[in-house]
Design a protein around this nucleic acid. Structure first.
Lengths: 214, 214
DNA sequence: GTCTATAGCTGGATAGAC
DNA sequence: GTCTATCCAGCTATAGAC
């Protein structure tokens, strides 16, 4: 009654589910012990299996980190893809930063893994990284809505946002000391970009593509 | 000819010198292996001694990290205390950020140790930390020269500076992509603070009802 | 796929001779 | 103070039975 295709699908689903159980245990473990505190012994105990079984699903400890990075990057992209319930471009921009704060502060370890280089010798694979790149594309979109398209202004914007978040998480975790500066910072930034546009010779061409990596 | 006091001083000097030799080897080691790559075996080998001898000068591995933090903080304070060869307040402010960039990029591991929380469970002792606090006082001074004294503007300033440096070191190490934005950022910031001062009452606190925990 | 058992190594830290 | 020798705990990863 069960044809080979169904059986294969079922096995595949079981395997994915087991992988996700292990990853769930991994997130729970690093939440308690820090990102570098992930050991295969503790992980296996928390997942209700034994250490060798972990190797049936991940070929190494770094592969686990990589899978976690992939999950985090996907969540980042999903959060960025959510629509906003406001129309004003500046409000959208502010809301995007608030959302980024929320995302980072909801899980500091996830933030560390995604945006800081804390694991010695770990580099995410291309597959795990691409969702994060996709998410950064949204920022470019929201800035364009506000007329900001110059490469150096995009760089300035990313520095502003990451600076606010970094200070918030380092010096006032759980508080709102830098979170409360988001509107003011955004206003400052947009005013600056506008002034920069007005004082320059004609507006930049719509199809400029120089130096726009990241 | 040699009185007891001199003999004591000489022994003290020798001991300090040996300590500094070990710390020098430690900096050299973490420069190669990363901050978390400091092992007492490798450290001893590089210092030309054996592991137990390290314990004659440091009571634990964390004590070594703490001494390194103290050195880094002292160097930070010394760099900040250097006078500037310009008088214009805004130029001084720009120069201070350039100097901070220089300090951070000259030794990325030192930057990690001082400004990022990368060592699991390591907290600098009060003695090692105080020089860093002293250095931060200079920033307040330079901002005051520019008429910036409000607490939230100081917070904004630290976020701007750390954001630029962080992006530079994470995404363009060895380059000048964000370093080149320092002047423009400073100008933007000062313009904003001035406008905020000129308007009668200070900018309203942003409403924090976006569902973030407080 | 999951287990028991263990290899093989590295880590921080200590004992005790000299 | 410095050494040799060593302890003990932790780690990643593998072998092989079931």
């Amino acid at each position: 009654m069960i044809n080979p295709v169904d059986a294969t699908d079922w096995r595949e689903a079981r395997r994915r589910s087991a992988r996700e159980d292990i990853l769930e245990a991994a997130w729970s473990l690093v939440a308690d012990e820090g990102l570098t505190g992930l050991s295969l012994r503790d992980l296996a105990r928390r997942a209700g299996i034994t250490p060798p079984t972990v190797y049936a699903y991940f070929e190494s400890k770094n592969a686990i980190y990589d899978a976690m990075f992939g999950q985090a990057a996907t969540q980042f992209a999903e959060a960025a893809a959510q629509p906003f319930d406001c129309d004003d471009p500046q409000e959208v921009l502010v809301a995007s930063v608030h959302r980024f704060f929320e995302f980072c502060m909801a899980d500091p370890v996830r933030y560390q893994l995604l945006f800081q280089r804390v694991l010695p010798g770990f580099e995410p694979s291309a597959d795990s990284y691409t969702p994060a790149v996709r998410a950064l594309g949204f920022a470019r979109e929201w800035l364009a809505l506000n007329g900001v398209t110059e490469a150096r202004h995009l760089d300035l914007w990313t520095a502003l946002v990451i600076g606010l978040v970094d200070q918030q998480m380092s010096n006032d975790p759980g508080g709102t000391r830098w979170f409360g500066l988001v509107e003011e910072t955004t206003s400052m930034f947009l005013t600056h970009c506008q002034a920069s546009r007005n004082s320059r010779h004609p507006a930049p061409r719509p199809n400029q593509t120089k130096g726009l990596r990241s």
